[in-house]
Nucleic acid binder design. Sequence first.
DNA 1: AGCCTACTTTACGCATACGTCAATTGTTTT
DNA 2: AAAACAATTGACGTATGCGTAAAGTAGGCT
Lengths: 125, 125
Amino acid sequence: MEKLMTITELGDELGLTPRAIRFYESKGLLSPGRVGSNRVYNYRDRARLKLIVRAKRLGFSLSDIAEYLDLYRSDPQQLEQRQLLIAKVRARIAVLEQQKIDLTTTLDELYEIERQATAESASVG
Amino acid sequence: MEKLMTITELGDELGLTPRAIRFYESKGLLSPGRVGSNRVYNYRDRARLKLIVRAKRLGFSLSDIAEYLDLYRSDPQQLEQRQLLIAKVRARIAVLEQQKIDLTTTLDELYEIERQATAESASVG
DNA sequence: AGCCTACTTTACGCATACGTCAATTGTTTT
DNA sequence: AAAACAATTGACGTATGCGTAAAGTAGGCT
């Protein structure tokens, strides 16, 4: 039988408050089981939440993330579904590839600032 | 003499509304010149705004960006200033490097989903 | 002069993403 | 059993990032 976690345990592990986790659930991003009235999270719930956290670090909104999670769930049996899936995935990829460019540019700038600052630190300090 | 732009010209070029640009100014991210009461933007203002747009695509908040812009402006003459600058730059770098990891992971997942979907598209469709 | 257009400030509105009580309930510890 | 603790569901509050009138001004066209 699988190990189950409480909401605070899960929150502590992933750096989230119970309030945040419940909020994500209210937006349809999670649907954990219950024991009585208490929420219980299994490893799949946990993996899902980790994915949410990762997407949030990338700056995605919760509704973005909801759509992103749908990509996993969508059934590619129907041709129309599949085409839609592919289109959505490619749209997300495009956004992320742009983000990659932005990231590289910004990191280059920051490393340059750091280089100059440490250089002055060596000569002046 | 340098060419100056109006707020709508600049907005059109960078995909922003005048409202957004004024809002950034109200948060201290920009300080364009004036001709009468009208704002005028030079190339430095434009470069600054492009940097803001890029940072926003990376999911940074405006106050994050304000601090980020300070990194350029900060005077590394004073040792204390310089140490602070280096520390802040390194903190930003750490965030962005984490973001890079998240980005790579997420892109890998998306490309995998796309691969599977197109594969089914070839065999089934 | 009168009008249109572009700009200005001020102000209220709104969606997102939670924080923070409040009141209640079930569990566990003493 | 009483107290303390962990969880629950509302409900209201708040910061961010603008959108959207509203009301006024300044310049150019007919």
